[in-house]
Each structure stands twice: as C-alpha cells, then as structure tokens.
C-alpha cells in the first residue's frame, strides 16, 4: 500500500542534542527516522520529556538539527534560504499546544489570522484580505463579529480555532499539530478533533499529530509512532498498534490508559511500570527502556536496538521481538 503513496516529509536519522546547564548532553532526539505520506496523519505519542515536540520542531526547521536530514517534498528543510524558505513556511504550518500563549495578546484576531496572508502577499487588496479572514473564521466555526476582538476575549476552544484559522490562512499542505487539544476540556476536544478531520478531508491536508493522549491519537491517526526518551520504539498503522503492540513500552503504555468503562476496568490486568522516565542527559548505552523493562536482558543494556520492520509496515526497536 505504501508503494504508490508519495512521501511528503522524510525524516532520516534526525538528532537534536542540547547542552545541559550543568554539563552533559541532553539527547532530546536521538536518531529518529520516519516518513509522512501525502494526505495521511502520522500520530506521535509519548510521555512528557520523550522528545516528541522537539522532534516535530526540528523536523519543521524551528530548531537547528544536530545531525540527520529532513526532506520536505524532496528539499532539505535545514538548508533552505530566502525565497525557498519562505515558500516552505507557507506550505508547512504549525498549530501549537497552548492556545493562551501562542496568540499575540495585542493583536486583533483579524491581524493574527492575516499575518501570514500579509507576509506571503496572498491578498490582492484590503477588501480581499478581510474577505479571506471572514472565510477562515467561518471555516473554523467562528463568525465575522469575532474578527476585531482580542485573544483574551475567547475561551480555550475558540482560541484553538483561531490558531487553526491562522495555520490555514496560507493554504498549507502540511500541518504539525503539537498537542492541539491537551489544554482543552473533553467536550471541546471532540469539537477540535472533528474540525481537524473535516479540514483534512476537504483540503487534502497532511498532519503530524503530536499528543500524549493515546485514545485521541488512535482516533485521528492513520499510523502512529511511539517515542521513548528521544527514540522511536514502535511505528505502525494505528489499528495494528492497538491490536498487537510489540514493544514492551507500548504494551505498558496502552495498559496504563484508563478506559471509561467500570466493567472493563475491573477485569483489566495492568502492566505496571516501575519508576519514572530516566533523564535524557547522557543516557546509558543500550536500549533506553531497559531500566524499566521487565524483560530486559544483558544485550538490552549494552546494545541499543535498531528500528526494524518486523512485518510489512510495522517497525519495532527491540531485541526481543
């Protein structure tokens, strides 16, 4: 199935290291590879501090990479300059996690949404600009009376809609959604996810959907990458991941998610993970998960496992699979 699909974003062996303040190196993203095909949604899940946001931001060229390569439609994102870079910025947009911090409090909603339109010269004149803003507000379920208000006058869900309108204003092909629903209430989350799915269908958008809520990620994604401490440990189609998780971390993660059903919860057997996620500063050699893994053997502590394709389209980084 993947042969006739066209890759849009190709990330290969991407690394992003930061130097920690007390010495040492934070290996936030350590040798991550994945491909996102046109029109699909790749979900990226993991616990806080696993490097999913850093990975996304580095792939978008917001952070300088330490090593590796990111190709967007065949072009290296990190070497783009001038007009090419501007063109990339138009084609690839971001929706941020915090709808309170990502909207400029001093700008009106119209100006926030139209900033990209202005920068890329997408409006013929002022009238056209206003028309476009109204159309975008309508598209995301707000109305034109909202155009001259400020961000603080809106609720969290409405702000996230403004963030989505801003991303859509420049007709992007690719949107990185960085935890777009984490800050919202359950009933509002469903509204935003439905909106994202609808927009994808209508405009043929491609998403990188980063979140820690696995249930929501499963709902929206075609394929899912599970990250742990800077590395991708498992990547496969979303149904497959839930049917047959192969990596011990994925199994534990799935079993930790509470299911809103008392009967199921009573019968459930949890795989308990001991301890916390270790620090990504100068991680020990071997598998990153070895310290918390019940199945870890000597090989796991010495040699770090590569991401292998164990069945068509199902990649796992574990010695034991």
């Amino acid at each position: 199935m993947s042969e006739n699909r066209q890759p849009l974003l190709e990330v290969s062996h991407l690394k992003k290291y930061f130097s920690a303040s007390g010495g040492g190196v934070v290996k936030a993203v350590d040798d991550v590879s994945f491909t996102i095909y046109k029109g699909e949604t790749l979900g990226m899940v993991g616990e806080s501090g696993c490097g999913k946001t850093t990975c996304g931001r580095t792939a978008m060229g917001l952070y300088k990479k330490t090593d590796g390569q990111v190709l967007f439609d065949g072009q290296d994102v990190h070497t783009l300059r001038g007009a090419d870079k501007l063109r990339f910025a138009r084609r690839a947009q971001i929706i941020f996690q915090d709808p309170y911090a990502s909207l400029n409090p001093r700008m009106t909603v119209a100006d926030i949404i139209a900033e990209g339109i202005d920068i890329h010269g997408l409006a013929k004149d002022r009238m056209d600009r206003t028309e476009q803003v109204y159309r975008l507000l309508d598209l995301v379920g707000l109305n034109k009376e909202h155009a001259n208000r400020f961000a603080h006058e809106f609720s969290g869900g409405q702000r996230q809609r403004i963030g989505i309108a801003r991303a859509l204003a420049v007709h992007p092909e690719f949107i990185m959604c960085d935890e777009p629903i984490s800050a919202l209430d359950v009933s509002i989350q469903a509204q935003i996810v439905n909106l994202l799915v609808k927009l994808q269908r209508e405009m043929g958008l491609t998403y990188l959907f980063i979140a820690h809520d696995l249930a929501m990620v499963k709902h929206i994604s075609d394929r899912i990458a599970v990250m742990y401490l800077g590395t991708v440990v498992e990547l496969t189609r979303s149904e497959r991941l839930y049917e047959k998780p192969l990596h011990p971390y994925t199994q534990a993660l799935l079993s930790a998610i509470p299911i809103p059903d008392p009967e199921v919860e009573r019968k459930r057997q949890r795989i308990e993970l001991e301890g916390d996620i270790p620090s990504p500063i100068d991680p020990p050699p071997g598998c990153r998960f070895a310290g918390r893994c019940a199945l870890a053997c000597d090989r796991c502590r010495q040699e770090s496992p590569a991401l292998r394709e164990v069945e068509p389209g199902h990649f796992v980084a574990c010695h034991l699979v």
């Binding site: 359950v186 009933s187 989350q189 469903a190 996810v193 696995l214 249930a215 929501m216 499963k218 709902h219 979303s238 149904e239 839930y242 799935l254 998610i257 299911i259 809103p260 059903d261 199921v264």
Partner: peptide
C-alpha cells in the same frame, strides 16, 4: 465525546 481505545475507530 471520549474516544475509546477498545472500540473501533
């Protein structure tokens, strides 16, 4: 409104 893991997408 809550998507569930154990149900179909």
């Amino acid at each position: 409104a809550v998507p569930r893991l154990d149900l179909e997408n």
